[in-house]
Design a protein around this nucleic acid. Sequence first.
DNA 1: CCACTGACGAGTG
DNA 2: GCACTCGCCAGTG
Length: 104
Amino acid sequence: MTHAEVFAVVRRIPRGRVATYGQVAALAGFPGHARQVGYALSALDIDASVPWHRVVNAQGRVSLRTGGSGGGMVQRMRLEQEGIAMPGGRVPLRDYAWRPDAEP
DNA sequence: CCACTGACGAGTG
DNA sequence: GCACTCGCCAGTG
C-alpha cells in the first residue's frame, strides 16, 4: 500500500472517466483502504505525471480543500477539460464512473 | 527513530 | 439528507 501502488492505478484511469478512492484502493489490491489512497494523493504534486484529478470520493465530489486555496478548482477545471461536467458541484458517477471491465 | 498528520467509506440513528 | 462512529497506512519533520 505504497503511494507508488496507488499512482500506478490512478495512471490507468482513462481520460474522460473518474474513479473513486475506494475503487482505486480495490484495484490496487487493497479493498477497504480508500483512506490511504487519499493520503497518498495528498502527497502528490499538482504537476505530477498522474491524473489525480480523475479521482473523486464515493459521492462524486472533489474531496480536497474545496474553496480553500482554490486547489479544488484546479481539479474541477481539469475534469471539465476532459468533458466531465459537475452539475450540482459533483460528478454524476452513474455516467462517468470508470468501468475497467468496459474498456476496449 | 518517534509522533503527528491527513484527498475516505460504509453503517447507524 | 445530516451528524456521528469506527477502521486504516505511509510519508514528513
